[in-house]
């Protein structure tokens, strides 16, 4: 079921290589304006403008982390209340069983712990990691994406993708160094 798009051969997409962050941002703007949506760019460090140019929306991560934190807060306070008041009530120096000020510290730590775990598991899940294999690594120069090169890849599953036309479009971009097909 990999053959999607219009008359596409069995490739992952077409990838262009750039030398500067400015060029790849410009390329992303143009490709997006042409109507391509299944596009990804690769850079050695985060470039905010690049994700804007590709039209990415706000990450859902902050909301997930908030929910994780609320879960931790309720769970750890609940655990303390249940164990100290219901399951194992102990009179310690005549203090009330429900000594809420003493429960604040573990509750705070539980909130932070669950929110942090959500942030880490969330970013991995949203990015689809761990991912043992990805076609872009078949491009010989792609190892430089973690050094000093910038790449833009239009994927074959894009409805507008056409092997020749898309390649020509990328070749015509300013500052492009090379355009290659990405094998599956």
């Amino acid at each position: 079921m990999r053959r999607r798009g219009t008359g596409t051969p069995d490739i992952h997409g077409v990838m262009a290589e750039f030398n500067t962050p400015h060029d790849v941002v410009e390329a992303a703007h143009r490709v997006h304006a042409q109507g391509y949506r299944k596009v990804d760019a690769y850079s050695p460090y985060p470039i905010e403008e690049l994700s804007h140019a590709l039209g990415f929306h706000h990450s859902p991560l902050p909301l997930l982390v908030l929910l994780g934190g609320i879960f931790g807060l309720v769970a750890v306070y609940g655990l303390q209340y249940w164990s100290a008041v219901i399951e194992y009530p102990m009179n310690i120096g005549g203090r009330p069983l429900h000594s809420w000020p003493a429960f604040v510290v573990p509750t705070f730590d539980g909130t932070i712990l669950f929110a942090s775990l959500t942030a880490v598991l969330g970013v991995l899940a949203l990015n689809g990691l761990p991912e043992p294999y990805h076609p872009v690594f078949n491009v010989p120069t792609f190892a430089l994406a973690s050094r000093d090169k910038f790449f833009l890849c239009i994927e074959a599953r894009d409805p507008k993708f056409d092997r020749d036309k898309t390649r020509d479009l990328l070749r015509a971009l300013p500052g492009v160094v090379d355009v290659v097909e990405v094998e599956h």
């Binding site: 985060p46 990415f56 942090s116 990691l129 792609f142």
Partner: peptide, 20 residues
């Protein structure tokens, strides 16, 4: 874990890093 420096990755990553 298969990190490839994609703009999509960085987008979520920056958010996670700031939240942490």
């Amino acid at each position: 874990m298969g990190w490839r420096g994609s703009a999509r990755h960085w987008h979520n990553y920056e958010s996670a890093y700031l939240l942490l």
